[in-house]
Write a protein that binds this DNA or RNA. Structure first.
Lengths: 245, 245
DNA sequence: GTCGTTCGGTTGTCCGGACAAAGCATTGAC
DNA sequence: GTCAATGCTTTGTCCGGACAACCGAACGAC
């Protein structure tokens, strides 16, 4: 069953990355069946003309992704389950698009406002200082799914309403050169206010899923704070998580 | 500012792990302030009498945890923000205990039942086959917080009601030699049924937070399926997540 | 037959070195 | 003064090797 692997040394792509991608593809594609051993590292390295550390680095990255399990004295096995994605920091827009839901956005508000105490605390800016405020309605198949309200420090990027309608906020931020690093989230639930109910075409007092999120870039700066509400009847958070050893 | 670091070569604890723990402690403790450079790897290795790969491994583990950021040509910086925990696979019991809430459990049901279609699909067992069913009420400060319903394949571990009342399910599993690996979760919301409302001392139709989770061990076997409901007025999911590069 | 021992195989840890790539500051040309 | 070229620092990648720890299976003693 000697899997077909090869690396291109003239490519600028790191060797360990080439290998890990090929292995991941083989797993995804079914060439490496769940539970099967991967063959020992030494021999694999020899077969590819790579050193063992390089092969180990490739394997380790897949272990971190949860696709492989290593067992000392046994070998490296393909994990047996339906691992999909370990909860990425993705925007709702991308999520819907990936699910083939054809997302749509209506920008209801796009302006600057003085920061409230809550917003100032989340973004670590001065209370009363100017921040962007964006309110959007997200639809899928023409049906409202969620009402999004975001606050963004001024000067980070320019927020163009047409652009906001055609893509997600995170994608805009990334293309503005911001490196997203981490986020702090709170997910809860409550009943809809009359305004929310109308906006989302739900009955009064319908249960809503709420999410607040503050996102940081790699310098530790808060770059976004959002409070969102989702129609519980049409949306739920769905993700995979790994046990960190 | 030459931070006080040292490793014990006679210890069975890996050197890179000793180092990463000391660095993490230094960050936690404030000895390494956010934004400060860590000093280059070569010099750090020389100072500790370690090789560069070992030092890199230690640093890399903290990068993976989101505490450090590396920049080629610049150095390694302590990230500037309030990173706490990146969403572990922990039980509600542990969460509450860590928050100082003194959790309490009442086992309402602990028996075996034939697997319904839903349960059979989640646990990958035969429909109609025997599975454990556990219903518990989780309280904090004497107040109901959540109603938990779990299904567990038979033969994995014995489920002792007294033990279930004094600790969390995951802790029981781990001490039974099961290595938890990953889980698939869905978080949503809905209105309480009259029975749920009474059990949780909420008004009829109150919004509830719902979570379904299937947990897998490192062989890919499903070891637990649970459907839980939380009082939205008293509980929310709170976590940090990192952007995977 | 049962149990402890030994042994081969595999991953875990660690070393020392080498070159490449990227960022930043300084220098130099215009 | 402005801008491009240069050089230094730092991390990124890769190599080849060595020994330790652990697992499982085969072996042998009782």
């Amino acid at each position: 069953m000697s899997l077909q692997l090869s690396v291109d040394r003239s490519s600028p792509v790191p060797l360990y990355f080439q290998l890990s991608q090929q292995l991941e593809a083989a797993i995804e594609h079914g060439a490496l069946t769940p539970g099967s051993l991967l063959g020992n590292e030494i021999e694999l390295a020899a077969r590819l003309g790579l050193s063992r550390p390089t092969v180990r680095q490739a394997i380790q990255s897949l272990v971190d992704k949860g696709l492989l399990v290593r067992r000392r004295g046994v070998g490296t096995q393909v994990v047996h389950s339906q691992v999909k994605r370990p909860l990425e920091l993705s925007s709702l827009y991308d999520d819907l698009e990936a699910a083939g839901q054809r997302p749509e956005t209506r920008v209801l508000l796009n302006t600057t406002v003085p920061a409230s105490a809550e917003v100032a605390a989340a973004l670590a800016v001065a209370e009363g200082g100017e921040v962007h405020r964006i309110e959007r309605l997200r639809l899928a198949h023409g049906e409202p799914m969620a009402a999004l309200c975001n606050y963004i420090p001024t000067g980070l990027l320019d927020l163009d309403s047409p652009q906001l309608e055609s893509t997600g906020l995170y994608r805009l931020m990334r293309s503005a050169g911001i490196t997203l690093h981490s986020a702090r989230q709170t997910i809860g639930a409550r009943s809809a206010t009359p305004e929310e109910a109308e906006r989302l075409t739900e009955p009064d007092g319908a249960p809503l899923l709420t999410m607040q999120r503050t996102t940081f870039d790699d310098t530790g700066r808060a770059v976004e704070y959002g409070t969102h509400v989702y129609r519980a009847s049409r949306y739920s958070f769905d993700f995979q998580l790994l046990v960190r050893a």
